[in-house]
Design a binder for these strands. Structure first.
Length: 682
DNA sequence: GAGGCCATAAACAGGG
DNA sequence: TCCCTGTTTATGGCCT
């Protein structure tokens, strides 16, 4: 009745002409499939209704995306008859990639290795967003035309015969006319409903973490939604670059719907979703709201791909609810973080955080460029890895990791996360190596140097847990940290092993090697005391011995002092710069910044610790200048809690119990020993 | 170049 | 016998 063959064929053709992207192709397949079900005239009406419904679904998503783009591009009032083909590229995208890059150009970029995988990912996502936008513009326009045409046809009653199928019976003529009017009303109601749903969907997108992107990435939900619509070449390129597990884009699985099924699906009839957003390229291990349930992809693979879920904990800002498995997490997500005022407010806050981070990043990048140009420092790694913005020399991480891992551990720049700066593009920071050292260095830091191991581990806990990167600390420092983190300040050897494997992904390999080293260090260093226990033997830390390890040299060797001071002097202005930048961008340290944002939390923590260190450093220079106490010891003094000291002991911070467990990420009430340990990985 | 620190490897012994 | 734990020695790299 609706003469649907014409417009739909046009629509399909246009979809193919637009590059045959996966998403449109899926939609087209779906539409075509639905039409194929209604070949006989008697079924034409129902088929049309089905197609209508599917179009309605597709239109919802399309409009939702367009509206978001309108909001991004200036908050223009949405018009239902938005037929303007003008491409409103989001600012963040337009700034980066004003044009769609062809696959050939992308290939060229890849061959030239100008970009890091992270940069490439961002670029690809931007490209996806652009292409999706274009496709959706066109698709949406055609859908609008088609819908209007249908409305006009219904209204004018020009159909030769109106076969309205309702409940399986043919209606009399009066009922048919009434049905037409009813349809019109329903149609208008649907259109109104669409607008409401668009808003809901948008909020759901934010709720599902789409806006909690890493700094440097455009805060654009489209990039995730667009992942199913990239051209095959880009997908292939991206597969090659990231090696990420992607799902083959051949089959259309109706279970491959969205995590936001609560809105998209529930808002419609329980039909098979016609628009499938392909969960392609869970890029960078980062989250997408897409939680495909395809059988070809293991469920656990995607457990780690949801940015709101990690290590069995809901990462919704301020939540941290423990979810045993992914399904329980989803239940929790839908129950506890449903669309309400609170979640909406949190989303807004998160949006602001992301925006501020992006702003901060851009400013700091400019500042960095100015600094580097001023210092004539050659950009360390223009195509290289995201350097961790670690107060430890980031080069140490990679250097030591690569150096002492003959098994060629994957210390690639594409590790899941990096300390403090999960994704940065280009040289994020001037490392100490790039300034002070030329060539490889090998240095590991004990607590006696300028970086408290507790704070570093606490700040980069997730990084160390996930990335097989060697921590830049000695075995002795790590062992000590493990012992001091324990409630009773004593651990058995096996518990030390467990701490290593639990805290560091690096130590989940080559167990024989590092375990031997642990035993060796325990025996070798006098600071580790073996105490016979009822259950066996436990190891404790003799802080006196630990602090005495190299006091004379540090206090007596001017070069060492200078080195430490240099390091310290380097860290302090860095944090000052960070603080200034955050202040400049009005990022409160302990409010929104720390609200579920590990990066900012870490920054704040690092700055807090560093400021403590500076204060204490100044104090120690003045009053506490006892010989044998290194500047680091003085700094460390901030992080230690003095216990009743032996009055006869004048050796400085003796009998100290570090308060490492007061680090931001440490939960003193948490029984780490009860946690599952990767014993099987040995 | 010497000395120290550290990582790694290995041998060895004792106990469960 | 095997494994775990603990000790000791040797070697090499890196740094000061």
């Amino acid at each position: 009745m609706m003469q649907e063959s014409g417009p739909e064929t046009k629509c399909n053709d246009s979809a193919v002409q637009n590059g045959g992207s996966t998403g449109n192709h899926l939609l087209e397949c779906s539409l075509r499939e639905s039409r194929s079900n209604g070949e006989t005239p008697s079924l034409e009406a129902s088929a049309a209704e089905l197609a209508h419904f599917q179009q309605h679904q597709a239109l919802q998503v399309a409009r939702q995306l367009l509206i978001h783009q309108q909001q991004v591009s200036g908050g223009k009032t949405q018009k239902r008859n938005d037929k303007q083909p003008s491409l409103q590229v989001p600012v963040s995208v337009a700034m980066m990639t004003p044009q769609v890059i062809t696959p050939q150009q992308m290939q060229q970029i890849l061959q030239q290795q100008v970009l890091t995988p992270q940069q490439l990912q961002v670029l690809i996502q931007q490209q996806q967003a652009l292409m999706l936008h274009q496709q959706l513009q066109e698709f949406y326009k055609k859908q609008q035309d088609q819908l209007q045409l249908q409305l006009i046809q219904q209204h004018a009653g020009k159909q030769p015969k109106e076969h309205i199928l309702q409940k399986g019976f043919w209606l009399p003529q009066q009922q048919q006319q009434q049905q037409v009017t009813t349809q019109q009303l329903a149609f208008q109601q649907q259109l109104l409903q669409m607008q409401q749903l668009q808003q809901q969907n948008l909020m759901t997108l934010q709720r599902h973490g789409l806006l909690s992107l890493q700094p440097g990435q455009p805060s654009l939900p489209l990039q995730s939604l667009a992942q199913g619509m990239i051209p095959a070449e880009l997908q292939q390129l991206w597969k090659e670059v990231t090696g990420s597990h992607t799902v083959d884009d051949g089959a259309c699985n109706n279970h491959s719907s969205l995590d936001l099924s609560t809105t998209c699906v529930s808002s419609s009839a329980p039909h098979k979703p016609s628009l499938l957003l392909n969960p392609h390229a869970s890029t960078n291990g980062q989250a997408s709201l897409l939680t495909p349930k395809r059988e070809s992809v293991s469920h656990e693979e995607y457990m780690h791909s949801h940015s709101l879920y990690g290590h069995g904990v809901c990462k919704w800002p301020g939540c941290e609810a423990v979810c045993d498995d992914y399904s329980s997490f989803l239940k929790h997500l839908n129950n506890e973080h449903a669309l309400d005022d609170r979640s909406t407010a949190q989303c807004r806050v998160q949006m602001q955080v992301v925006q501020q981070l992006e702003l901060q990043l851009s400013k700091d990048k400019e500042r960095l460029q100015a600094m580097m140009s001023h210092l004539h420092v050659k950009s360390t790694e223009p195509k290289a890895s995201p350097q961790p913005l670690n107060l430890v020399s980031s080069a140490t991480l990679s250097k030591t990791a690569s150096e002492s891992s003959p098994q060629s551990l994957p210390h690639t720049p594409t590790t899941p996360t990096t300390p403090l700066t999960p994704i940065t593009q280009g040289p994020s920071v001037i490392t100490t190596t790039s300034i002070h050292n030329v060539g490889p260095i090998r240095r590991r830091y004990s607590d006696k140097y300028n970086v408290p191991i507790s704070s570093d581990i606490a700040q980069n806990q997730e990084f160390y847990k996930n990335a097989e990167v060697r921590p830049p600390f000695t075995y002795a420092s790590l062992i000590r940290q493990a012992i001091l983190e324990s409630p009773e300040k004593q651990l058995t050897l096996n518990e030390i092993y467990n701490w290593f494997t639990r805290m560091f992904a690096y130590f989940r390999r080559n167990a024989a090697t590092w375990k031997n080293a642990v035993r060796h260090n325990l025996s070798l260093h006098k600071c580790f005391v073996r105490v016979e226990n009822v259950k066996g033997a436990v190891w404790t830390v003799d802080e006196i011995e630990f602090q005495k390890r190299r006091p004379q040299k540090i206090s007596g060797n001017p070069s060492l002092i200078k080195n430490i001071q240099t390091s310290h002097a380097y860290c302090t202005p860095l944090n000052a710069a960070l603080q200034a930048s955050m202040a400049e961008n009005s990022i409160p340290l302990y409010t929104t910044a720390s609200m579920g944002n590990p990066a900012l939390t870490s920054l704040a923590s690092a700055m807090r610790e560093e400021l403590n260190g500076v204060i204490d450093h100044a104090t120690s220079n003045g009053s506490d200048s006892s010989p044998g106490r290194s500047p680091m010891q003085a700094m460390h003094h901030v992080h230690v809690k003095e216990e009743p000291m032996d009055p006869d002991d004048n050796e400085g911070p003796l009998s100290l119990v570090t308060t490492a467990n007061q680090s931001p990420d440490f939960d003193p009430d948490r029984d780490y020993e009860d946690e599952p340990v990767n014993e099987d990985m040995d």
